[in-house]
Amino acid sequence: MHIAEGFLPAPHAIGWTVAAAPFVVHGARAVVREVREHPESTLLLGAAGAFTFVLSAIKLPSVTGSSSHPTGTGAGAVLFRPPVMALLGTVVLLFQALLLAHGGLTTLGANAFAFAVVGPWAGYGAYRLARALGAGLLPGVFVALALADLATYVTTSLQLALAFPDASSGFAGAVVKFLGVFALTQVPLALAEGLLGVLLFRVLTTSARPELERLGLLAPEPAEERG
């Protein structure tokens, strides 16, 4: 999902930067507020950031014969709501743009919008919907992580199609072309990411139960035991 450095025309690069900036600033304030009001959250915030740091570094093979990497942004979105991930995700992208020549500074806005804004919100939306429909925490986590992953790549496809519409078939043709590159490859990886999220939250439900209760992910202990 990393649009390479210089691969968006300047107006697009500026436009996406302007679009992503308020989310990142709001996210930075959300992180500061969370740490100030709940210092005990710092550990879990670190876990959320570390999770996306690991997953976005690992490129995995997929059924289409190409490889891609998961995003890991859904975990933090479920734990702390999406704004927090707008900052953490952008930090990851900045690291990759500066040290790995992966993504770029001119495309940071567009990549942050896909990876750190749309992904986390899509995942969080899926989580809330799943919980509202009566799903437990773990199924909710699964759909959240898988959808955050997939939504990020769909967004990248749309961004590229917008910048590079096909000569004959226009925007729609370009959407199909870029979705062909990104989306199908991502499906098994998104499922794998969802399962990894379930593994992570299985550990958290036993080890970080007080935090999950305070964050509203789990009902307080006695009610949970009876249910």
Binding site: M1, H2, I3, A4, E5, G6, F7, P9, A10, K59, P61, T64, G65, S66, S67, S68, A97, L98, L99, L100, A101, H102, G104, L105, T106, Y153, T156, L160, F164, A167, K177, F178, V181, F182, T185, Q186
Partner: peptide, 29 residues
Amino acid sequence: AGYAGTDGQATAAIEESGYTPWFESVFSP
């Protein structure tokens, strides 16, 4: 299959259309 990265495939598709990137990475491994 070569298992090429999807990011690279996307940039290749863009370069095919005649686009040349206008900015280089500040640091490349």
